[in-house]
């Protein structure tokens, strides 16, 4: 793997390795003795069930002192029946422009 020509690199890496070994933290076997973390499904289901119960109770007994929106809003669009544009003057509907005589006959309102 490492021919003779690689001795220079081997030596410098070995030196670095010795230095790192001196700086390495002490071996702590207690790190390996921790109990495995198993997901507690019972706890998870208990939490979910409790949340559902709390939400159900809240929505069931939630005070409803505000009326629905449709009832709360005033009848803005209710108006008595009548002719559309009744208030508009007739002269606006029969407006004649000075240049109307230039229009073709079939479109000219002054030519019946």
């Amino acid at each position: 793997m490492n021919p003779k020509s690689d001795d220079d690199l081997l030596a410098i890496f070995a030196h670095a390795r010795r230095g790192d070994r001196e700086d390495a933290p002490a071996w702590r076997p207690e790190l390996l003795d921790q109990a495995p973390q198993r997901p507690s499904f019972a706890w998870r289901w208990a939490l979910v069930t409790a949340s559902v119960v709390v939400l159900a109770v809240f929505f069931t007994y939630m005070p409803q002192h505000e009326p629905p929106l449709t009832e709360a809003l005033p009848p803005l669009f209710d108006s008595p029946p009548g002719e559309l544009f009744a208030s508009v003057e007739p002269s606006l509907l029969t407006f004649e422009a000075p240049s109307d005589f230039l229009m073709p006959d079939q479109l000219n309102p002054t030519n019946p």
Partner: peptide, 9 residues
């Protein structure tokens, strides 16, 4: 434990 120093390296 044997590998610990090299593992740290």
């Amino acid at each position: 434990e044997t590998l610990h120093p090299d593992a740290f390296g």
